[in-house]
Design a protein around this nucleic acid. Structure first.
Length: 485
RNA sequence: GACCCCAUCGUCCAGAGGCCUAGGACGCUGGCCUUUCAAGCCGGUAACACGGGUUCGAAUCCCGUUGGGGUCGCCA
């Protein structure tokens, strides 16, 4: 039986390298064995999910050449592939569990849950989690209260004793005591399923045979195993890969690294090189060769050669390989790539628009536009400019760090258009009490590397979010380094 | 903190008891080539976390310690 695998990203934020990483191995495995690679959108968080983010995932995966066989945009035998469109299916399955006593309705308020959690934290209890307040509510009573319209969630009734064994094909048997697992919410009060429920129901209904995903899911797998059991289903095979890491070995995060696939595209990494690089982070060829194409990876892919350690994502090595691959391409091909990924007509248009008042000859555009391209810039020549009257170096570092952190938390700033950045930045000044003049100056300096530039927010928008973030990080790092000395 | 995972050069990967005085790649470094800089070529640097076992023999198996990571949400 050909395998069926899936990638199940949630459409929040930018398409993540980690998603591409996991997608790659799922894709290779499916192709190797003539199976199917399914793309399922896990948009069960109404707050954070967005269509634009979903589209971005499609675009990123396609840019990399990891096309799927079934998905929201293509349909397939198990459509729909968007969880928000499968609500009736989950509701029906929850009813089943309710009827069998495998789940129960919980009417606890958020306030009560918060209080319980806080108390547990304070008391340093062994296994914090839901205290089972509604667990023994008579089902009829629960049903009646629900019918009367009382807000509630549905929780899974986790057995009170025993172990759950997860068979991870990469790690062997992993045993969990059931006392560490609290009664998971399966259905939220808004009628949407949680990840655990939707994931298990869909993997089963969609005939997924192998679940290849990140290690972050390993500890929730026993819950999934229990759910399969509650439904009376056979669980798929599990493979948990190590997580991509920052240089300091923490889980790869946008706070410390560019994690958007688009960032790598914008900086001009070749998709085939990028994929090759990702592949070597978690997989090795039997003959130990490390430069190979997607086709070669597929031809020789073998799940047992996946590794479980968390590899550090090393952009220096990626860049070295990228240069090597560029040298191997024809000039024509390079020009085509340049025009597609780095200097596309829309971007060129935006740059010319910003530059035309500031240049006198056509070829002035090129030196003018330098800061719109490339990664890090040398900020050392302008280091003294980061000194602000009445502000210490530490304060400057702190405010830049805070700005950086808050960009991602702000719903509007995330889209990174001229207007949204401006709105965010002005709000930021109000919140922090810093003058716009101070903040805007610092931003311009950090991102552009000079004091003279086109209007700040246009500039940031054209530079793009990832490049902006990267240079802010660089600036902070440089300031920290020099402050220490 | 509890639970779970992981542990070979700075980093990535190879090594599935003797083939290992541990191999490849990036980085760093010396040299060659070259009007320069790159590129290319040749060479060097550098690791089995520690402690106990098992075994004739351990990087490879077991236990412990240490270290790193992940998870503990009506987020996925």
């Amino acid at each position: 039986m050909p395998p069926r695998v899936r990638i199940a990203p949630s459409p929040t934020g930018d398409p993540h390298v980690g998603t591409a990483y996991i997608a790659l191995f799922n894709f290779a495995f499916a192709r190797r064995h003539g199976g199917q690679f399914v793309l399922r959108i896990e948009d069960t968080d109404q707050e954070r999910s967005s269509r634009s983010s979903e589209t971005a995932i499609f675009e990123a995966l396609r840019w990399l050449g990891l096309d799927w066989d079934e998905g929201p945009d293509k349909g397939g035998p198990h459509a729909p592939y968007r969880q928000s469109e499968r609500l009736a299916i989950y509701a029906e399955h929850v009813e089943q569990l309710l009827a069998r006593g495998e789940a129960y309705r919980c009417f606890c308020s958020r306030e009560r849950l918060d209080a319980v959690r806080k108390a547990q934290l304070a008391a340093k209890v062994e296994h914090p989690g839901y205290d089972g307040h509604c667990r023994d509510l008579p089902p009829a009573q629960g049903a009646a209260r629900a019918a009367a319209g009382e807000a509630h969630v549905v929780r899974m009734r986790i057995p009170r004793s025993g172990d759950v064994v997860v068979h991870d094909r990469l790690r062997g048997e992993v045993r969990f005591g059931v006392e560490q697992i609290d009664d998971q919410v399966l259905m939220k009060s808004d009628g949407f399923p949680t990840y655990h429920l939707a994931n298990v129901v869909d993997d089963h209904l969609m005939g997924i045979t192998h679940v290849i995903r990140g290690e972050e899911w390993l500890t929730s797998t026993p819950k999934h195993v229990l759910l399969y059991r509650a439904f009376g289903w056979e669980p798929p095979e599990f493979y948990h890969l190590g997580l991509l890491r920052n240089a300091d070995r923490s889980k790869l995060s946008k706070r410390k690294n560019p994690v958007s696939v688009f960032h790598y595209r914008a900086l001009g990494y070749l998709p085939e090189t990028f994929l090759n690089f990702l592949a070597t982070l978690g997989f090795s060829m039997a003959d130990n060769r490390e430069r190979f194409s997607l086709a070669e990876l597929i031809a020789e892919f073998d799940l047992s050669r996946l590794s479980v350690g968390g590899p550090v994502f090393d952009p220096v090595k990626l860049a070295a390989w990228n240069g090597e691959d560029m040298r191997a391409m024809s000039v024509e091909a390079l020009v085509a790539r340049l025009q597609r990924d780095v200097l596309d007509p829309a971007r060129l248009h935006a740059i010319v628009e910003l530059g035309r008042e500031r240049v006198q000859r056509l070829d002035d555009f090129v030196p003018f536009a330098a800061f719109f391209f490339g990664g890090s810039i040398d900020l050392r020549p302008v280091l003294p400019e980061f000194t602000l009257k009445g502000r210490t170096r530490d304060e400057v570092i702190e405010i830049l760090q805070r700005f950086l952190d808050e960009i991602e938390k702000d719903k509007d700033a995330r889209s990174f258009t001229k207007e949204s950045i401006e709105g965010f930045a002005r709000g930021f000044c109000e919140r922090t009490g810093w003058k716009t003049k101070e903040i805007f100056g610092l931003l311009r300096l950090a991102v552009v590397g000079r004091t003279a530039a086109p209007p700040l927010f246009d500039t940031l928008a054209v530079c793009g979010k990832d490049r902006t973030r990267m240079r802010l990080r660089d600036a902070i790092e440089l300031l920290r380094a020099t402050a220490a000395g």
